[in-house]
Design a protein around this nucleic acid. Structure first.
Lengths: 80, 80
DNA sequence: TTTCATTTGTACGTATGTATT
DNA sequence: TAATACATACGTACAAATGAA
């Protein structure tokens, strides 16, 4: 909660990159254990006040970076 | 033109994958020379009767396959 | 077994921004 | 000044798979 204020819609960095950076920081801070899920897409939509497409783009970046992996219909998990 | 009938919206393979396969076949058939652009996104939208996001997903697959490369604000070109 | 909520996958519509020609 | 083209982001809707009740 309260996280919607962390995204700046008029910043040079687009929201999906901001969100990816914010989630990467939380992952690296150890907020979630390896092999445990990060919040679902609808939850992230509500928490950060962005569209689901934006959430999915951010998660796609995290997958590219090797920070998480997606299990279809199950969730997005922190990589061990 | 007339290509919209080549996409089946209720087939098991999603439209964006169908479109990627269709374009890949046209590229491999030599329909466009290397370093020349394939049709624009709006053109493909009209030709195949799919949404722009779908066209962009198909093109993203072609980029992954190494068949084309995108030059921002210029177009999508066949790889040499 | 059936039902149901949850979650990701896919698709489309629309709008705005920015760069090139 | 347009017209063109890609980048981003908002929204909506439904499908499909999973797992629990």
């Amino acid at each position: 909660m309260g996280r919607e204020s962390e995204i700046r819609h008029n910043a040079p960095t687009p929201p999906y990159r901001q969100l990816a950076a914010l989630l990467a920081a939380r992952i690296r801070a150890g907020e979630w254990e390896p092999d445990t899920p990060i919040p679902s897409e609808p939850q992230l939509v509500g928490d950060y006040g962005v569209a689901r497409n934006t959430v999915r783009k951010a998660i796609a970046l995290l997958v590219e970076e090797g920070l998480v992996f997606v299990v279809p219909h199950r969730g997005t998990f922190v990589k061990p």
